[in-house]
Computed example of a mutant assay.
Amino acid sequence: MDKSAGCGSDRFCHCSHLSSHDVGTSERVDAHFAANTIGLQMAAAGLGSAIIPSFLGILARQISLEIIPIGMVISFGSLFGLYLLADTSKLKA
């Protein structure tokens, strides 16, 4: 199976076509600051992956379990909105 055309049967996806569409962090910031910027992005991702489920758990305990799907939709909408906001630089170019 040709791995350049898509993901093969390997455990990890080594898709070369994914990196060609998006501009990475190292292209958006100076090379000197790329490692620190990527570290900040990873820290924010870790913090978000801890805070969002914790917050939904607290809401579920206080209100009911029915709040979890609503909270997930709100979280998805917020993250998608932030993605679109960050992606507007491609539309201007």
Rank of each mutant, 00 (worst) to 15 (best):
M1S: 04
D2G: 01
D2C: 06
K3I: 08
K3P: 04
S4D: 14
S4E: 14
S4W: 09
S4P: 02
A5L: 15
C7A: 03
G8I: 03
S9R: 07
D10C: 06
R11K: 14
F12H: 12
F12E: 12
C13M: 09
C13E: 06
S16A: 15
S16E: 15
S16W: 12
H17M: 15
L18F: 12
S19T: 08
S19Q: 13
S20D: 11
S20R: 14
D22L: 14
V23N: 13
V23W: 11
V23Y: 10
V23Q: 12
T25C: 15
S26K: 15
E27G: 11
V29T: 13
D30C: 10
A31T: 13
A31D: 11
A31Y: 08
H32E: 12
F33D: 12
F33I: 04
F33A: 14
A34R: 13
A34D: 11
A35H: 03
N36W: 05
N36V: 01
N36Q: 09
T37L: 12
G39Y: 01
Q41E: 10
Q41P: 00
M42T: 02
M42Y: 09
A44G: 06
A45T: 11
G46N: 11
L47A: 04
S49G: 11
S49F: 09
A50L: 15
I51D: 01
I51H: 03
P53T: 02
S54Q: 13
F55C: 03
F55K: 05
F55M: 08
G57T: 09
G57P: 03
I58M: 10
L59C: 10
L59R: 03
A60N: 04
A60Q: 03
Q62Y: 00
Q62S: 08
I63P: 00
S64H: 13
S64Q: 07
L65A: 14
L65T: 04
E66S: 13
E66I: 06
E66F: 09
I67P: 02
I68P: 07
P69G: 01
I70G: 00
I70N: 01
M72D: 00
M72S: 03
M72L: 04
V73F: 10
V73A: 10
V73D: 00
V73N: 02
S75L: 05
S75H: 03
F76V: 04
G77Y: 06
G77H: 08
L79S: 12
G81F: 15
L82H: 09
L82C: 14
Y83L: 07
Y83N: 01
L84I: 08
D87E: 13
D87Q: 06
T88P: 00
T88N: 01
K90D: 02
K90G: 03
L91Q: 07
K92T: 09
A93N: 06
